[in-house]
Simulated scan of single mutants.
Amino acid sequence: MTVKSIIKLMDIKTLVAGGIPVLLGSIYSWYAFGQINFVYLILLLVAMILIQSATNMINDYFDYKRGADSKERRDEKALVSGESTPKQVLFIIFIYQFIACIIGVFIASQTSYVILLIAFIGGMISILYAFGPLPISYTPLGEIVSGATMGIGITTTVIYIHSGVFNLSTVLVAIPTSVFIGTILLSNNLSDLEEDREAGRKTLPILIGVKRSEKLWIFNVIMLLVLTIVLMLINIYPIAVLLSAILLFPHNSISKFLSYDKNIHTKGRTMGLIGKVGLKYHLSVITGLLISIVFKAGV
């Protein structure tokens, strides 16, 4: 198995979903509570990349075993193309999860062992997402579960690791990230709609149809800015975050999204677009927070 095959298994276009909550939670902890540990930040980024990659592999493994992936997807699926064997994938999953577990135990030993309980719950959700008589990925709940688990769950946990604080504000600050991560899965399911239908899945786009799914995608993207305004009005975000978000937000993303049909052949374009939206939005939020941190330090 080659490095290229491993990268394909990791599905790197989705890894931004794991890194963003870590970065946002770390910088927000610094802004709101004056607490950040850069060693933890680096370790958490590594752990989340490994966990997200392992989750992608678990999903691909069980899809392959069920025969849910067609031969048309050999360009993006290493198992379907024969570049990797099921045993090799299971071995990589074990290694990735083991390393992430070691990182988690270390951080928990330095902060709170509650972190291990949270990690265990997250791990169980990632398994149930792809495994069992009715995997979450086969239901319309995928977007909600992934958004809540990775958006709210990871962001609030990261803030807690740095600052020891968990309250309503740390939950509210994570909601836009939750919306973004849910939209990543919506983009994926919208692109795979026909293939998922043939595999017997009942994903959200299959349930509500293409047009409503596209409207939901647009609504979610708009909500990123709306929620930022709300968070500023209730004094969770400084005004610098809103100004930065307005200036840096990819405002032409909606017109680009509506300019082509969504299917397996345009999946890379759709996933790249939502990735760009989420990355630019969160970078703008982080930029605004950093500006505010510098300003407070100067004052």
Rank of each mutant, 00 (worst) to 15 (best):
L24R: 02
L225W: 09
G298A: 14
S53W: 00
I49Y: 10
L193M: 14
L186S: 04
V22K: 00
P86T: 06
Y260H: 15
N189Q: 08
N37M: 04
M232T: 13
R197I: 14
S163P: 07
K4S: 13
I286P: 01
H282K: 05
V171Q: 05
A148H: 04
V294T: 12
L190H: 06
V145C: 12
N235Y: 12
Y237N: 03
G123C: 06
V158D: 00
S255K: 12
H282V: 00
S81T: 05
I234N: 13
A100L: 03
I58H: 03
A54S: 15
P238M: 06
R201P: 03
A148Y: 05
Y260P: 11
Q97S: 15
L15M: 13
K4H: 09
S255I: 11
D69M: 01
K296L: 07
Y61L: 14
Y260W: 15
E195F: 01
I102W: 10
P140A: 02
N167K: 00
A54W: 01
F98Y: 09
I20G: 06
S255G: 01
S178R: 03
N189Y: 04
T155V: 13
S5A: 15
L79R: 00
R212H: 05
F166N: 14
Y28P: 04
I184S: 08
N56K: 04
L248H: 00
K280A: 10
Q88M: 00
I42E: 12
P86W: 00
L43R: 06
S5P: 02
A240Y: 04
T2N: 13
V294A: 11
K77W: 02
P135S: 04
F249W: 09
C101D: 06
S259H: 01
Y28R: 00
L290I: 13
L172W: 07
S191N: 10
S284V: 05
G275I: 05
T111Y: 03
D75V: 10
P86K: 04
V145D: 09
V294G: 06
T85V: 07
P140V: 08
I20R: 01
G151R: 02
M223A: 09
S244P: 06
L117Y: 14
A68L: 05
P86A: 00
F38K: 03
V299D: 02
S109A: 13
I12T: 15
D11L: 05
T157K: 02
N188V: 03
V89H: 03
T157S: 15
S84E: 05
L141M: 10
Q35P: 11
A240V: 07
M271T: 04
I99F: 07
I20T: 12
I27L: 13
L248I: 09
Y129T: 02
R269S: 10
F38E: 11
I239D: 09
A68P: 02
K65D: 11
L225C: 12
V171F: 14
I58A: 01
G151L: 08
D11G: 08
V226D: 13
L141C: 01
G278M: 07
L242M: 15
K71W: 13
Y160N: 10
V105I: 15
W30A: 00
P176Q: 03
E143P: 11
Q88R: 00
I159S: 05
I115W: 06
K256L: 14
I293S: 02
K13I: 14
G268R: 01
E76M: 09
S255P: 07
Y160W: 15
K65P: 08
K256W: 13
D60T: 04
L50V: 10
G153E: 03
V80R: 02
G182N: 08
Q97G: 14
I102Q: 12
M57P: 00
S112W: 09
S187Y: 04
